[in-house]
Amino acid sequence: MHEMGIVAEVLAAVTTAAESAGAVRVNRVRLTVGELTAVVPDSLQFAWEALAPGTPVEGAVLEVVETPARSRCVDCDLEFEHDRFDRRCPACGSYLCEVLAGNELRIDDVDVDLPDQAPVPSPHEATED
């Protein structure tokens, strides 16, 4: 369950970024996770629900974008998408292929509310003198 440690890193990075931006609330955190990593998106969500409460990131939605695996054949130069179990070149059958995408483990961006963008007061409060 190394996803716990991964989520802890995300929470720390997002907390720092939100605090230095002066944010009052974190709405959404977007990650990119490559298909070739040993990181399971469902386990990230589970860890998120376990670890985010009580931090400044509490209540934020975790969005995980999965990127497909892509490699280039060293022998015939073909670029191709493949699954996590087989990156043999589909054209020439070579086993020597270099991975171009699929190993990502990245925090992309964070959506936050700043103080001046705080939710509009309710009509009841707004009409109060």
């Binding site: 991964i6 890193e9 995300v10 720390a12 990075a13 997002v14 970024a17 939100a18 931006a21 944010a23 990650l31 483990l105 990245r106 925090i107 992309d108 961006d109 964070v110 959506d111 936050v112 509310d113 700043l114 963008q117």
Partner: peptide
């Protein structure tokens, strides 16, 4: 507001 981080999750370990 969107804050662009674009950093490896495991930047500290790296």
């Amino acid at each position: 507001m969107e804050i662009d981080l674009s950093r490896p999750i495991l930047a500290r370990n790296e």
